[in-house]
Design a protein around this nucleic acid. Structure first.
Lengths: 122, 122
DNA sequence: ACAACATGTGAACAATTATTCATATATTGT
DNA sequence: ACAATATATGAATAATTGTTCACATGTTGT
């Protein structure tokens, strides 16, 4: 189906196998994009700090702003990103809106990241 | 030790407890920064694609460029970032340099991310 | 209906970043 | 030593992004 010319590094046949294998196991473009998009969300220390607060309790926006010494607006912008990516969920109670973790993957992912970093230090 | 005034959302005492709890469980600034830095590495679809290739085999730079239809230079730049963050390791063999996964966290993290995305679809 | 409070959001600016291009480094075979 | 090949890297550019500011939306109590 795909007759590409392969001429790098000399060894031709091995590389053809690789290309086939990669084509089979590589997720679709849209899924790769979604994955990268998800990890981008974890790639900001403000959002990580928000998640660490939510590990401990369900809190409202102004509490987060207070706890992290940041503007309510900045927090709100970040919460929107976290919510769009389904890492947190929200619940209204009067004037306040309370945020909490949406699912367990959040914690697993952060824990794994932390393990990776700790290992580096050895 | 830290006598901050808390005046948001009315309920004063609950929030003081929260602040204490957060101060106890929140990792240090540098660790939060490192964590975010690590996830930033996963937050690019080119790097994710590179990692997916490395899930299957140890490959050289020109193979990666070939498999992902990208410039050798672009791949090389991204490999540097992956290596700096200890997600991949390299080994020289003649003129070629072969890259492979550095540890198992890489796969766990990507798998968890994928699970999270799949769940969203339900 | 209105004032006070909690949160959401668009525009703007500064900072970060992925890719390209040109070039440097390193290895091999002659 | 030199040409050929494989990889690395600095500079430049375009695109993305986090925060701030100003203001909009939504809720409560009077």
């Amino acid at each position: 189906m795909n007759n590409r010319e392969i001429e790098c590094c000399g060894e031709t046949h091995v590389h053809e196998d690789l290309l086939e294998l990669v084509n089979k196991t590589m997720p679709e473009e849209t899924k790769l994009y979604d994955l990268a998009e998800l990890f981008k969300v974890f790639g900001d220390s403000t959002r990580i700090r928000i998640l660490y607060v939510l590990f401990e309790a369900e809190v409202c926006v102004c509490d987060l702003a207070e706890a992290l010494h940041m503007t309510q607006s900045a927090i709100s912008h970040q919460l929107r990103i976290l919510k769009q990516n389904k890492l947190v969920k929200s619940r209204r109670e009067g004037k306040s809106i309370f945020y909490s973790l949406a699912d367990s993957h959040v914690r697993t992912i952060i824990d794994q990241g932390r393990e990776h970093i700790e290992e580096d230090r050895i």
